[in-house]
Design a protein around this nucleic acid. Sequence first.
DNA 1: ATGTAC
Length: 493
Amino acid sequence: MKRGFDRMDTEGPEIEGIERVDNDIWQVPLGYKPGMRVPGRIYLSDKLFTNLEKEAVDQVANVATLPGIQKFSMAMPDAHVGYGFPIGGVAAFDAEEGIISPGGVGFDINCGVRLIRSNLEKSDVDGKVNNLLDSLFKAVPSGVGSKSRIRASESELEEIFTNGSRWAVEEGYGVEADLTHCEGEGCIEGGDPSQVSAKAHKRGRPQLGTLGSGNHFLELQYVDEIYDPVAAEAFNLKQGQLTFMVHCGSRGAGHQVCTDHLRNLTRAVEKYKIDLPDKQLACAPAQSEEAQAYFGAMASAANYAWTNRQIIMHHCREVFGQQMNMDADELGLDLVYDVAHNVAKLEEHDVDGGKKQVYVHRKGATRSFPAGHPDVPKAYRAVGQPVLIPGSMGTPSYVLCGKQSAMDVSFGSACHGAGRVMSRSGAKHTFRGEQIQKDLSGQGISVRAAHPSVIAEEAPGVYKSSSEVVDVVDRLGIAGKVAKLMPLGVVKG
DNA sequence: ATGTAC
């Protein structure tokens, strides 16, 4: 196997000081680093353990030192090193005594995934995949700095930042059911456009309905396997069915929000005299002006991301209509669900035998609420929320459903994807985009990309096995496998 | 992830 050149590729068989406490559960004990207020927990199989970076474990321990952290500083099986907090990290902080930190959310605020089902079967697109991909590639601007034809006015942008994807539906980019089939109905309450800088407004205005770059994609897929027939029926999924996935985030607007507020919260660390093991953990007391300003801006960026995915989905539906020569009812391109992978949310959880309000930071982690939870859409209340896990390019994606254990062990959270094992720079040295594209084509998977280098950076070999990651959360009962989706064609940013 | 460094 080809290998890259940087430390992310080194296989570390032993990480001193961490302990296995159960199958797939590793503990970072209080003594691992000074100042830890709670232990760390890393949910990981033996096999994935060989890819675990020591620096990611150190980050789990660093997060455990933050004021007001509850139960454990956690990392999902797809964890790897991130800015301050690990990607794949989950941490909940007391809403009164705790902190809020942009590092716990990441730069791509509400990077997330939506899944669309259809009345079509795989065979219905035989010989049409390439035309569909070409049209999708044209309909959704992609790549770094891409812009759309939509120009939201200042008042429209403020509405999007405040209320999320409802604006898009009211403007005709979708239907009411798209909102009820979306995490939080496409909105985090508390979005505050006045905390979003003029620069972030300016970057966001021309980017509604654009895909972006990196691991973001549009994917034509089919249901290859059903694991849980009851949940699959609730989600309106069946064997052989054509599905469609959108993976993207808040583009330049979210990035700018993170940049702006990191600067502000770095100053707040001194003001509130918070002792940090790593400057990248910049944060402020949850109820402070600075933390609430960040939260309002972060919620705005999250709302922008949901609107972005809503508009992208609408344009893709139009493409399907034209290419398949079918109307909306015939196509049945209904939104199954949309999940955020990078957000902080104010939620109620059971802690120490009582209910508590906490700011749950999920950075590369999916909410995974179980059956019966009031925040699960009514249509899915009997089985749990859909948990959408995109594969890396050319590998399967998974649909899971939220399970009760998630509420007990991970503040209602599960993994979010495969997780990188090689950096982008390593990947560009190791792979050539044209060759990867050819290899995938040989497997029956067509790829379109804004630039070949993106294909190299996102080559299947730079990610862990999504199947292995998903199996860990399934075994732990954090989320249960419902269906496996295989790619037919991909549009990369 | 990102007007891919300020």
